[in-house]
Structures are given as structure tokens and as C-alpha cells.
Design a protein around this nucleic acid. Structure first.
Lengths: 111, 111
DNA sequence: CGTTCATATGAATGACTGTTCATATTATAG
DNA sequence: CTATAATATGAACAGTCATTCATATGAACG
């Protein structure tokens, strides 16, 4: 095995702590599911209730609820109750800018 | 079931095509693994060979190679051969800006 | 050529996770 | 209080994927 002490020395300080690393990768995994991405795209136009999301994406109410929980736990969406109905909306602009960054990347690679 | 034709109407046009959606979520899934994220962090300081990456992160050579393939297939890293050694480096600044966006998000949520 | 080092690849296994089904909340209306 | 609509939750199943082990490729050197 060849030597690379110098290379190793360079970045020992950089790596984020376990807690942050875990949160960070968890966040990206949440973005990594087509269904959730569709939901986020849908919400980028404005708030929607569980019912409408399910109808729009052709998925069961239960599946939607499960995914909304995931999205909420990672602070990507927020909710608001109005009677029996719960409306979900994107939590903030961060969500969109992350998706856009990814979007640009995959578009570049199409060449 | 209550009515939401108006809501639905709003965003039918938005959703990206299947191909793009698939590429996009695939990309985020790649960012969603702690090992790969550690590799990307390591490379953010400069190129490294497979050997050094494995040593640094305490993982087997085979595992590193497998992951480098994933990273390369999604254009997150590029490689350069020098004799028997293969050096990997981040493909472009995009990678770092995506990670940073995510980083900011998880940091905000710590409050 | 044969050997050795660095890397790549294929198959198998175990862990994780999205969906479904059944059931539980929560809220409104009568 | 009962019925019903909207949403949430828990358990089970199925598909995905990261790691490991064994083996293959590729390059330098004698």
C-alpha cells in the first residue's frame, strides 16, 4: 500500500460530526423519493390538503399521510388544520432552492 | 370527499417529466448515504486515491470502489489514473453548493 | 512471462424503507 | 351521543441498496 499521509492530513478537520452528518444525509434521502418529490413540486404552487395530494398523484390517503409525516419531521413542510382538513405547505424557500440546485445538476449531465 | 378542483388545476403543468424526476431523486439518494457524504467531504479538500479514502474512512477497498462508481455515474466525481493509482476529485462546484444548501437547512432546524 | 500492487466487478446477504391494509384519532353535523 | 368525513398510525410485506467476500482487470517491474 502506498503512502498518503499528506493527503490524509489535509482534511481531518473538515468532516462534520456524526449528528450533523446523520441529519444531512437523512434530509437528502427524503428528497430521494419520487413520490415525495412530486409532493414537493405540487406544494411549490401553494398549500394542499392530504386529500387533494392523494387525488392528484393517484395515491392512497394513508400513503400520503405517511409521507407527509416524513416531510414534516425533516421540516420541509408545515401544516395547518382547518376543521377536519389539514393543509400542508412548503416550510420555506430553502426547500425549493435545494431542489433547484439538484435540478440544475441533472440537467447539465444530459449533454 | 370534499372538492378541490381549483387546487388541482393550479399545478398540473409543473411536475417534471418522469425521466427528469428519476434523475433528480436518484441524485439526492446518492447524497443520502453517510459513507458517500463522508467521501464527498474528504474530496472537498482535493483529490484522493481509492486507497487513501478507504484508509481515512476505515472502509474496505471494495466498498470504496463500489461507492466511487455510484458517485461517478451521477457525475459527482471525476477520476484520473496515474499508473496503478486512480485519483478521484469532485466533479464541479455544484456538488459543494448542494451539500451546503442541505447543511444550512439541517442547521436551522437545530433550534 | 510472472509477480505484486491498486482498483474494479459480481453475487450474496442484511438492513432500510415505501406501500398497503386495518384500525385509530379528530372534528363536524344532526 | 351517533354517524361520517378527513387524517393519522401501526404492522406486515416487498423492493432497494450498502457492505462483504471472492475474483477479475490493469499497470509497473524484474
Amino acid at each position: 500500500m502506498h503512502d498518503h499521509r499528506a493527503t490524509l492530513e489535509r482534511m481531518r478537520s473538515l468532516t462534520p460530526d456524526e449528528e450533523t452528518l446523520s441529519r444531512l444525509t437523512r434530509l437528502f434521502r427524503v428528497f430521494g423519493d419520487p413520490t415525495r418529490m412530486r409532493i414537493l413540486y405540487a406544494l411549490s404552487r401553494g398549500e394542499m390538503c392530504v386529500c387533494a395530494i392523494g387525488e392528484y398523484l393517484g395515491m392512497e390517503q394513508s400513503a400520503v399521510s405517511h409521507q407527509m409525516k416524513v416531510l414534516k419531521d425533516t421540516y420541509l413542510v408545515k401544516s395547518r388544520r382547518e376543521g377536519k382538513t389539514v393543509y400542508y405547505a412548503l416550510a420555506d424557500d430553502h426547500v425549493q432552492s435545494i431542489v433547484c440546485q439538484g435540478y440544475e445538476h441533472v440537467c447539465e449531465d444530459k449533454e
